[in-house]
Amino acid sequence: MARQVTYVYKKQRKTIQFSFNEYHDMYEAAAAAEGIDLTSFLAMEKQLAMSCRGQGIMKNHRKTEFTNMGFGEIKFVRDEEK
């Protein structure tokens, strides 16, 4: 079953196809669709993972950074939303 991700980028809603074979998560898929290089972001995220306990810090960091990049409302599309 194909999955879709919907997000808002610079005030424009977009929907893309998503596969766990190609992307680690929906944030990486959205960034790839917009041509954004996540190399430095992923390096910082790796450092945070090594130095912090708990997922709350990681989740907050990811959400904050993607908001700063211009993204919003990144989520999977449910079947009833189509």
Rank of each mutant, 00 (worst) to 15 (best):
A31Q: 04
K46D: 15
H24F: 12
N60M: 11
F71H: 05
T6F: 01
F71N: 06
N68W: 09
N21S: 14
R13I: 02
G56L: 11
F76N: 04
R13S: 06
L38V: 10
E45K: 13
G35Q: 07
K59G: 07
T67M: 12
N60W: 06
K10V: 01
Q17L: 14
H24R: 09
Y9D: 03
T39F: 08
S51Q: 14
L48N: 04
F20I: 03
E65W: 03
T64V: 12
F71S: 08
R53S: 10
Q17G: 08
T15I: 15
A30R: 00
N60V: 07
T6S: 11
G54I: 06
H24L: 11
L48R: 05
G72N: 12
E65T: 07
R78N: 11
Y27G: 02
D79G: 05
R13V: 02
K14A: 01
A32T: 09
G72I: 02
K10N: 15
M50D: 15
S51G: 08
S19P: 04
N21P: 01
M26A: 14
M69P: 02
V8G: 00
K14T: 00
E34Y: 02
I74K: 00
F20N: 06
K82F: 07
E28Q: 14
Q12M: 12
K14Q: 04
G70P: 03
E81H: 04
G56E: 15
S19N: 14
I57G: 05
T15M: 08
I16S: 00
N60C: 10
G56F: 08
K46N: 13
E80L: 10
R78A: 12
N21G: 12
G70W: 04
E81N: 07
T15E: 09
D37C: 12
L48P: 01
A33C: 09
K11L: 12
T15K: 08
F18C: 02
M58N: 08
Q55A: 15
K59W: 03
N21W: 10
A43R: 12
A43Y: 08
D37R: 08
R78P: 01
M44L: 07
F41M: 06
K46A: 15
N68T: 08
A43S: 14
A32S: 15
K59H: 09
A29Q: 01
F71Q: 06
Y7S: 00
R13Q: 14
Y27N: 07
E65P: 03
K46I: 09
M26T: 09
I36G: 07
